[in-house]
């Protein structure tokens, strides 16, 4: 089939996280993605959407912000892109905990830093682009 693309606009508030997970779960079912890969896609998008809402918009003092979620279905891939106009942030340049950091007892662990790690590891491919003053966080799942 040709690529089918759907674009949805969300307010940059944390209460959109659940509707986004519901949409992605439904999309996962439509394209025959298994439960685990669907869950992991929801998780990856959730982590980055949280960062966009919280750091990209809220902490930057941008009110009434919105971002787009683009869902593109093709024969062999499901590609989800978050497009936002918040503070530029490249998760691929963000330091994530190393394998060694993840063995540190929880008593001594720094709090935070796990979201980006989880996002990057939970999909087959994660990309970031900045163009036209927009962040594009791209999540690719192979079908």
């Amino acid at each position: 089939m040709a690529t089918q693309t759907q674009t949805i606009t969300y307010k940059a508030t944390l209460d959109v996280l659940e509707p986004i997970r519901e949409l992605l779960t439904q999309t996962g079912q439509e394209v025959g993605l298994d439960k685990k890969k669907t869950y992991n896609l929801c998780l990856a998008v959730d982590e980055i959407a949280t960062n966009v809402i919280r750091h990209g918009y809220s902490e930057a003092g941008i009110k009434d912000g919105e971002f787009n979620l683009i869902v593109a279905k093709s024969d062999n891939q499901l590609v989800v892109t978050i497009v936002d106009a918040g503070t530029p942030f490249n998760p691929l340049e963000h330091n994530v905990p190393t394998a060694e950091d993840l063995t540190i007892p929880l008593e001594e662990r720094p709090i935070g830093g796990l979201g980006v790690l989880i996002a990057r590891q939970s999909v087959d491919e994660f990309n970031y682009e900045f163009s036209g003053n927009r962040n594009r966080n791209i999540f690719i799942v192979n079908l």
């Binding site: 997970r21 869950y39 929801c42 998780l43 959730d46 982590e47 949280t50 929880l106 008593e107 662990r109 709090i111 935070g112 796990l114 979201g115 989880i118």
Partner: peptide
């Protein structure tokens, strides 16, 4: 049904409080 890193943080805080 769903736990993000924000949920892991709750587990971390609970673990610390009880471990202490």
């Amino acid at each position: 049904g769903f736990v993000s890193s924000a949920g892991l943080r709750v587990l971390l805080m609970l673990y610390r409080q009880i471990k202490a």
